[in-house]
Design a protein around this nucleic acid. Sequence first.
DNA 1: AGCACGCCGACT
DNA 2: GTCGGCGTGCTC
Length: 744
Amino acid sequence: MHFIEVAVPVPLRRTFHYISDQPVARGCRVLVKFANRELVGLVCNEVTEADIAEEILPKLAAVKEILDCEPVVNEHWLALLSWLAQYYQAPLGEVVHTALPAVLRKGAPSTYTKPEEIALHPDIADIPFSDAAAHVAVMQLQKKAKKQYAALATLHKALSHGQHLTLSSAHKLTNAASVKALLDKELVQKQPGVIHSGAWLTALLATESTHLSPNVEQSIAITGISSQLNQFFCALIEGVTGSGKTEVYLQIIEKVLRQGQQVLILVPEIGLTPQTVARFAKRFGIEVGVLHSGLNDNERMQVWQKARHNELGLVIGTRSAIFTPFAHLGMIIIDEEHDDSFKQQDGLRYHARDLAIMLARKLAIPVLLGTATPSLESLYNAKQERYQHYVLTNRAGSAVMAQQALINITQQQVEYGLTNEALTLMKEHLQQGNQVLVFMNRRGFAPAVVCQSCGDVHTCQACDKAYTYHQFNRSVQCHQCLHTQPMPRQCSACGGRDILTEGIGTEQLTTGLQQLFPAYSTIRIDSDSMRGKQTLAKTLDAINNLEHQILVGTQILAKGHHFAHVTCVIILDVDGALFSADFRAPEKLAQLVTQISGRAGRAEKPGVTYLQTAQPGHPLLQDLINNGYQHFAEFALHERKALNQPPYSFQALLRAEDQDIRKIMTFLQTMLGFVGHMQHLNVAGPVPCLIEKKQNRYRYCVVLQSTNRSYLQKVLGLLMPECEAKANELRIRWSIDVDNIDFS
DNA sequence: AGCACGCCGACT
DNA sequence: GTCGGCGTGCTC
């Protein structure tokens, strides 16, 4: 008899024991009966009878099925998963659930079967194609079957340097008929698929290395970092847009790859474009594994298996790609390190950047954090010399940094949210044949629908939030729960029929600009207008081909894409961030402004950024405009220190959600009773969350804060069972968010 | 989280 | 008489 400890996917912060007649190794999946249903669990320990409480022994059930003969989770990852569970106060089963690809957590076999491959006939393989063409059979093809000859040439090229081709990719590369004919003539042959562990290295070494010559700052970063590979350290590469950050990555990646080690690059959700991937693939001449939200379960599994069997040298992916089980990982790069999409905002609320650092420490490999606008957390770590800090200030070529200025919105005529001053500036830039970018972080036509008789604001009942009017489908949408309904014909409060919209969104701004500037083409880029897979890529191409002159858009414009012909950027609605209840709002605004400014201009045509504000004297804006992000960040860090806020302290957010505020209060007050007057711990609340109501549930929270991270950990560890018990009793939803990045 | 058990209202 | 609503209790 063997006794095992199993993590099951239930929201319970404990593991369960099972009996097996065969030994099962840690990291293997098992199918078990659990509360009258079958679940896939992960064996997290082999134990003995003595380890199990006596009263539980009679309840022990036998494992239904052992799903793996080899562990799917190795010892390194097993340790990391339990670290994750502990650090984020999450059930181990839930951690396992987030870490494993969907097919595996559903119980599919983890065995890796490769599809059939094709190979050249030995007589014509491993020789230049010109020599192969001298072969009788090949000469015949050249005369009689031009298509097959061309196909053979393509396959010959594709199969050089120890590369491999599956039958289906050979079909795609050429055509099915030709491949069939070549197989019949035995010029190519089928062979069973094999795992080509490390084959990418051969391809890499056969590819001519093509680096640009780095400038002094780039050189310092490249040599500094590559001289200490094969050990743990963390480097912050702070490089203004256009300073050649990517070239630094590329040259260091090449060194790691040449050692035969794999590299993982994490990018923000919308930063992963085919062009980015193509750039890496072309530079190194190897296949690049790609992981993003658009993939299905099988495509994900494919990359997972290839990385695990060392069939990929390089993987680029979004947040969850951090869970890829590499065979020989040699480095992790986090691009746009400051981006909030690296923090998961539901379920297991992990931060991929922080997990990457833990993983790197465990594997004794470096982590590179790259950004033009470092998060205050990373900047602080760099200042504390926990991270190495490399700064790239030179824009490639002669490009100058973008200029920034403020436009005072008060005492000015405003049309469609734009001041006369802004419109005049736009006209100047447009007349010079340049493009203008107008940023507004509010999609839709208008952010409010108001009855003119009684003043009633049409509000989502489930969220207590004003509906946004969308003109393209004459509907209103709640931007919190995404509920959509037709634009009302009469007021729900007084029955009045005179209903108008108030305020401006990107949709209205776009139509407005089309009227104000009929000679130019205005295009809107937001999640409404950019639905569909290829739409964004096509629009970006059209913009760079100068098919549009005025670009209106939201967040999407701030990330990754570069607009060489944009010389004027206007940012609307910055004031909200100046008076936000979230202490991180200024940091986020500064990052946004700096990132958008960096999107525009090029060497001969630098861009100018204007912030339209009713608070032109605000010290934060003044500092950012006059002294830049670095200076702003210094100032912000001082402020955080004075107020004892992160990164000078550590926070966790305990959130409760329910239809009944009294239940929420009972729950949170009970929890405050446990931690309310503990030493070295600050507690605030209960206060409404930044999203106070969502889908008929009120949301309140308590913020726990301490300057001692492990102390906060301990407190949370003690508090969790109490939360579970009380929530169970009250039947209330709750969640804990360690290192929360906001208060929503 | 699920899923069963259990105890009250409107149906062929 | 039942079918089914969702309150509550438990999971090796």
